[in-house]
Design a protein around this nucleic acid. Sequence first.
DNA 1: ATGAAAGCGCTAACAA
DNA 2: TTGTTAGCGCTTTCAT
Lengths: 289, 289
Amino acid sequence: MQAAIDELGFVRNEAARALRKGVAHTLGVVVEDISNPYFTDMARGAEAALNTAGYDALWCTSDGSPEKERRCLDFLEEQGVSGIIITPVALDASRIARLRTRGMQVVLIDRRVPGAGSSSVSVDHVMGGSLAVRHLVAIGRTDIAFVTAEPEPPPLRQRRGGALRALARAGYPPALTISMTESSAAAGQSAARRLLEFGTLPNGIFCANDLMAIGLVNELTRNGVKIPQDCAVIGYDDIDLAATAVVPLTTIHQPRRELGRKATELVLADADNQHIVLAPELVVRDSSE
Amino acid sequence: MQAAIDELGFVRNEAARALRKGVAHTLGVVVEDISNPYFTDMARGAEAALNTAGYDALWCTSDGSPEKERRCLDFLEEQGVSGIIITPVALDASRIARLRTRGMQVVLIDRRVPGAGSSSVSVDHVMGGSLAVRHLVAIGRTDIAFVTAEPEPPPLRQRRGGALRALARAGYPPALTISMTESSAAAGQSAARRLLEFGTLPNGIFCANDLMAIGLVNELTRNGVKIPQDCAVIGYDDIDLAATAVVPLTTIHQPRRELGRKATELVLADADNQHIVLAPELVVRDSSE
DNA sequence: ATGAAAGCGCTAACAA
DNA sequence: TTGTTAGCGCTTTCAT
């Protein structure tokens, strides 16, 4: 049968199928930043899972912009996808409600929107932040700085919250916070410059993600700062580049593909109000010992 | 009108529209490796251009696998996209012919498939390779190594070809070639280790892409090799990370977004047998002087 | 069991 | 101008 189909060059018309069924055989995956491996790995996990289930993925990029996010959702709605996996930027309960009315299950990554009935999968960022700071404290660092981005997305805020709490528990003063306007390697580089201008460097730095940590470590190294002797650095995400950095980076590992896989399961199970929280893990490399 | 539509929450059914028109209002973009900024930047350039023209993008990832590429194309064919932009892995003339028969214009990135009638947009990699080596020679490097991946995709082969030719013209012996099994930062790291095992290091290294160059520079630095004093390194692509690397990386800049933009223009113009070649540019940073 | 027919929502062609 | 209708290719239902 399949052979005959291939022979004749028959190709099913998905538009007709979707029209007849009232819903497309696809799931939308809306990613916040395609150049951050954290998001693409999550999306790949989701895609693998949904391919296995016989679905196809429609990838969209919001680039962190509410406007672009809206256009992604408009597109997915017009396409009649059967569900949406999204790292939301400005998605609110009313839009989610509307999507759900149209029969599209929405699963949020790393965020919850109260009152929308939609499910979510996230990593416990408070725990991750705490893990990071407890590690810095355990190796004897007392003067700790936190590098984040402003406006601060909830996951970063949670990481900082966990960090501050762990610091308070250890009896240390609250960490110095450096806020950048984005969370790229270039931002990490600028953060390092700002830190160097202060004159005295903290002896421990927790960066809200690996990309910033890499940019920061590179800039510090370039200025003769010895990592980890002069200053221990810990990142967050455990992207591939972390392991091959100049100073292999201690970081908080996130089960990114698992995140995408779980999200797919929830969408396909049409689950309401389910919230899965995964645990992050400390990965110790050279940048902290 | 639009206001009323929004008010009533009307959403156009794209499946019905596509069925009626016989073709969807979308273009497929097939990317080889979503974790390489080179490809994602190209795809973003394409997406921006096609959005401007009123189209939506269907992103697919082949992950460099012929099998996955085939599935991407099957998907796009079923979706009835009006055109496809692709960095081909194993796409042959017969498949292209079939797609074209179905009314889908195919534009290839960085590769040509003879006899298929499809257009292409590429960067002149032979020129890029030559540019890289001429720069190394100009700063006095005589013992040059080339780091590539095996199996070697045409763009990398062309870069190496240009490099070898430039070397021959300068009257130097052919470069030592190190082949890795992939072209990631981890592969660059392994290449560095292999080079260090040889005992004598070349004084100039040309890596087939920035990711490998970054992994290589990191590993060499970690082993006490001074870049560029002991060994100058040049990459290829000019990804964002190149500028913020420990040793800011000299590289060959590729107009990635422009590549995507031009490809979109060709698809939408339904151009046959047009071949646009863009010129790369040398960007000198610290890793070479 | 196999076959015929209706209808999903849209657009293009045609009628008034 | 405005309104009506046929039909895209599929799935599902209903009849044989």
